[in-house]
């Protein structure tokens, strides 16, 4: 077995174990107010970070391209209470159009 295979298998198994461990924390821990606040704010922080990196990061660089107008349209549609799928498709269409027109 090559080192690459060993790395693939080890990383895959460890990644699964990481997911599993999160569920093994005793439920009582989560009911403490501060812990509860942290766990309810975590998705907000992670989503905020994922929006930013998905919209403006290109590998290790920041990049303003067709994703930004697409995200702006998505935000506008969300403010207008458009359904989720409409928002996602509209963003894809805006980005694809911008790129077809040669920008971003």
């Amino acid at each position: 077995m090559s080192w690459l295979w060993a790395g693939v298998i080890a990383a895959a198994v460890l990644s699964f174990a990481q997911k599993w461990i999160g569920y093994q924390v005793p439920p009582g821990v989560l009911e403490k107010p501060r812990i509860a606040r942290v766990t309810s704010l975590l998705p907000v922080a992670l989503l905020g970070a994922l929006v930013a990196t998905q919209a403006a990061a290109d590998g290790p660089q920041l990049m303003a391209d067709a994703r930004l107008p697409a995200l702006a349209v998505a935000a506008l549609l969300l403010a207008l209470r458009a359904p989720f799928l409409v928002v996602v498709i509209a963003a894809a269409v805006v980005a694809a159009l911008c790129r077809a027109l040669g920008w971003g």
């Binding site: 998705p43 907000v44 989503l47 905020g48 994922l50 929006v51 998905q54 919209a55 067709a66 994703r67 697409a70 995200l71 998505a74 935000a75 969300l78 989720f84 928002v87 996602v88 498709i89 509209a90 963003a91 894809a92 269409v93 805006v94 980005a95 694809a96 159009l97 790129r99």
Partner: peptide, 22 residues
């Protein structure tokens, strides 16, 4: 996949998931 706007779609999906929590 970027030519199809899928990267922007992913960003919009994360924003859509974030929105109701704000």
């Amino acid at each position: 996949p970027g030519a199809w706007g899928l990267d922007a779609a992913a960003a919009a999906a994360f924003l859509g998931l974030l929105w109701p929590r704000l």
